[in-house]
Amino acid sequence: MRGSSFASRVALLLALLLVLACALVAVLNYLKFERLLVAQQARVLGIIAADAAEGFERGINLGVRLPGVPGGQALVERALASDPDLHRALVADARGRILFDTERGRIGEDLPPALAAAAGGAATAGWRAAPIVNGFGQTEGTLLLGHARDSIRARLDAIALGMLRPTLLVLGVAVPLVVLLTFLAARPVRRHFDAFGQVLARGGGGAPPAFAALDASLAETEALLDGAERDLEALVALPPGQETPA
């Protein structure tokens, strides 16, 4: 029997399953690693923010108000320098006025709404806040660290590449192999289909043992029809009025 085969559908299905499973594993792993790296970065930022805020708190505890903390600008500059993913560090007072900022031109401005929300404790993408609290437990202001995800992105890209190459290699070997194995596994069934078809086509020749009974039954049916046809043709050939042979 020639033409398309069920084996093609099965092979396509299995190949798709392989691709899907590998893609699923890669995507799930990628998402998990992204979460872990983001958490890692959050911990680093937490250390930097806590350290810088503590610096301001030490200054306040000496008896000065937040705007007058000695070396305040140096503290935010040092915080900014401590991690390459940081792009800005600033301190705002409790009313939202910027007191120290690595972008010095903004000192004295009010915090924009998004940063004001971050300073108020709301989760804001790209910003990490740490409250600056005086010795009486009152919040004097907030330290805000603006951060990017460049290093995370670079690491995730490296992880993705690290997964992509072996995945393509594995699929490059596995997909042809699974197609080959499927066609090999399907051969007995295709032969079975062929043999069945041969019996139904009544093409002659010996039927395989599995179809011997069906072949004999169909042959018996054909023989019955042949006999009946011969008998009727014999009757047609008889002259009118003659006795029938049947």
Partner: peptide, 8 residues
């Protein structure tokens, strides 16, 4: 694929 992912 997972072994490669974990190693990366």
């Amino acid at each position: 694929v997972s072994a490669a992912a974990l190693s990366a």
